[in-house]
């Protein structure tokens, strides 16, 4: 019961080896690489040590654009997804018989390959033959060049992203709703609480940890968006790079321009942004949780 031995490390060995080789080592290396000017994979050579890569990064208008695009994406997708998911989860939870059916349907997007379903959405957004323009035409709206015009590329991406991300959130909220003790609702009924107040005073506060969790996970995932962009725009970052996101920028520098140092710097910046935002978010919602 109280003896300590090193045997535990034997069990951990495979995981530790993988973690060192493919997580810790690359992490350190990426940070180092970000400070090496003109780093080349082929001969491990570099021309300088310093902030050269970061300077290149911040002076590149494309990087700023990708930051902006990503920010827009996150702001549009995450809150909308959370709110809609909350709504649907509450509605689904109140169904007695059809709950399982709805749960199955609404969770479907989560298990699907983003690439495959992105290709389908691409087809649905087709300017001439796409389903979406057809539906819009029923309401008298002119066909929109979704994937061809920069101003519509982001909205298309956002719609697709919301569709994909709701599945996970709905599931988490449903699970959370099922943990709320029935007695809370019974007490509210005895006090003749109107339904909306039940929602805001009981349901939402009880779900607060789930909402925070989904928000953080959603935000982190949204910042790293790549597959959605790739599949919707067939490998490009949107018409005229209008959907260029941070990760897209990083990969472009890495895979196409062979500017490994700059790519590494970009990834470090990405990491720091995510870290900072997560901290802020946890601090803000931690306070709100306390008040409730």
């Amino acid at each position: 019961m109280d003896k300590k031995s090193f045997k535990g490390y034997l069990y951990l060995l495979p995981s530790i080896i993988i973690m060192i080789c493919f997580t810790l080592y690359p992490l350190v290396r990426a940070i180092i690489m970000s400070f090496l000017g003109n780093y080349s994979i082929i001969n491990d050579g570099y021309t300088s040590i310093g902030f050269e890569n970061y300077q290149a990064l911040f002076s590149d208008p494309d990087f700023g654009k990708s930051l902006m695009n990503t920010a827009i994406y996150v702001i549009c997708v995450v809150p909308a997804s959370i709110i809609l998911s909350l709504l649907f989860a509450v509605l689904i939870n109140s169904c007695k018989k059809l709950k399982a059916l709805f749960q199955t349907i609404y969770f479907l997007p989560y298990v699907t390959s983003v690439i495959a379903i992105g290709i389908v959405w691409r087809w649905m957004f087709n300017s001439n033959y796409g389903l979406i323009n057809y539906v819009l035409s029923i309401f008298g709206i002119e066909p929109i060049q979704w994937l061809n015009l920069p101003e519509y590329a982001m909205p298309a991406l956002i719609i697709f992203a919301i569709w994909k991300s709701m599945a996970f959130n709905i599931l988490i909220f449903l699970a959370g709703l099922q943990t709320i003790p029935e007695d809370l609702y019974r007490a509210a009924r005895i006090d003749s609480t109107p339904r909306f107040r039940v929602f805001t005073r009981i349901t939402v506060p009880s779900l607060a940890p789930m909402i925070v969790y989904s928000s953080v996970i959603g935000m982190i995932g949204a910042f790293k968006v790549y597959n959605e962009v790739f599949s919707l725009f067939q490998g490009k970052a949107g018409p005229a790079n209008s959907a260029m996101t941070i990760v897209y920028y990083i990969y472009d520098k890495f895979y196409n321009s062979y500017k490994y140092g700059v790519a590494a710097a970009g990834s470090v910046v990405l990491f720091l942004i995510i870290l900072a935002l997560t901290q802020i978010q946890l601090r803000v919602t931690g306070g709100r949780k306390g008040k409730n």
């Binding site: 109280d2 003896k3 300590k4 031995s5 090193f6 045997k7 535990g8 490390y9 069990y11 951990l12 995981s15 530790i16 973690m19 493919f22 997580t23 810790l24 080592y25 690359p26 992490l27 290396r29 990426a30 690489m33 982190i220 790293k224 990760v247 990083i250 990969y251 890495f254 490994y260 790519a263 590494a264 990834s267 470090v268 990405l270 990491f271 995510i274 870290l275 997560t278």
Partner: peptide, 27 residues
């Protein structure tokens, strides 16, 4: 199992969850 440094190693494993794959993919 009980082994020295267990808490530290576990925290280390958890910390790696924060690291975006994009940082690691190049290396």
């Amino acid at each position: 199992l009980n082994f020295p440094g267990k808490k530290t190693v576990f925290s280390l494993f958890l910390a790696t969850l924060m690291i975006p794959g994009e940082m690691l993919i190049i290396t």
